[in-house]
């Protein structure tokens, strides 16, 4: 079965790329620039450590990264000031391509980052990682530099979650993965079910691939990327890398419920376009949840719209800046 071969050939452990000097040599040989993008919203507790370690290890000790850029959604804490103080280039998402309609969200930040970043390879890493290590970047960059056919790499983890501010739970991450996205992938696109953590927030890819992808602005960015890459180029350009432990903030079940809603919304939209299923009527955009107070249940309705940015290569300013005809 092809998928079995894919797992064998395209699954790595970060330690296979521990020779960072060799990665730097390969980057120079290929004459590439590599950019790291950190999307933020109120990450003042973790952003400094991420920038410091990446700059120290992958710019000072080994010049693997050419730039570190923070794209901020409008933090109300000191995220932007702290990031600047440690030498990152910091942009407010709203200030990038300011003439187009403004949206909020991680997907918006990642999409707009493509316009300000200079790299041929773009690495996206969430800014809320408590146990940040430079392996999070070089582990993802490794297969992109050492395997010519690999154009997109995705992280997976043994991921403990922070139950509260002081206790770590050794397992239990990835509930939405196991209860929502893996069943859907298994039903419709079993090749993608081989990806161990399809919703992980860390991935890297060549600009030539990313610029051709639509970016949903809500929860569906990771799902849509995988489906679109599968549809356009096939799974063989994807690699997955075990980055060991990732400690991050936990989300409550209601938040995960809204995340699951957004991911299903994106999946159904893509699956319809790919001819994998047809939906008789338009989908609703309201997620209904309940909360209890004084023995009464109240209904909370969350509007979750499926808003997408088109491939950035369709934006004239981008085409002009990067010489795309």
């Amino acid at each position: 079965m092809k998928t079995k071969q894919w797992i064998q050939d395209n699954t790595y452990h970060y330690s296979q790329f521990n020779d960072i000097g060799a990665l730097v040599d390969k980057k120079r040989e290929k004459n590439l620039k590599i950019s790291l993008c950190l999307p933020t919203l109120n990450e003042e507790k973790t952003i400094a450590k991420e920038i410091i370690i990446m700059r120290s290890e992958l710019m000072h000790r080994f010049p693997l990264l050419d730039e570190i850029v923070v794209i901020d959604s409008g933090s109300t804490d000191n995220t932007r000031e702290i990031a600047k103080s440690y030498g990152a280039d910091v942009y407010l998402a709203d200030d990038i391509l300011p003439h187009i309609e403004k949206f909020k969200g991680k997907g918006e930040n990642l999409w707009k980052a493509q316009y300000v970043l200079e790299g041929d390879i773009i690495v996206y890493i969430d800014a809320d990682i408590k146990n940040i290590h430079h392996r999070f970047a070089y582990g993802l960059i490794g297969p992109l530099l050492l395997r010519d056919e690999v154009k997109y790499s995705k992280a997976f983890y043994d991921r403990p979650i922070a139950v509260d501010t002081s206790k770590l739970k050794p397992s239990g991450g990835g509930r939405v993965t196991e209860l929502v996205i893996r069943p859907l992938f298994s039903l419709f696109t079993p090749q993608l079910a081989q990806i161990i953590q399809p919703l992980s927030g860390e991935y890297a890819g060549y600009r030539e691939i990313l610029e051709q992808l639509s970016f949903p602005l809500g929860y569906g960015i990771e799902t849509s990327m995988l489906l679109d890459i599968l549809g356009k180029w096939g799974i063989d350009i994807i690699a997955q890398v075990d980055l060991d432990k990732r400690i991050h903030r936990n989300q409550d079940t209601l938040s995960l419920g809204r995340m699951a809603f957004g991911i299903m919304q994106t999946f159904i939209n893509r699956a319809e376009k790919m001819g994998l299923l047809s939906v008789a009527d338009d989908l609703h955009h309201s997620m209904i949840q309940f909360s209890q107070s004084d023995e009464n249940y109240s209904q909370d309705i969350h509007q979750i719209q499926l808003t997408e940015r088109p491939p950035i290569i369709t934006i004239p300013e981008y085409r002009e800046k990067f010489g795309r005809s």
Partner: peptide, 8 residues
Amino acid sequence: DPTLWVTD
């Protein structure tokens, strides 16, 4: 929690 936090 063995994590160290860094600010400016």
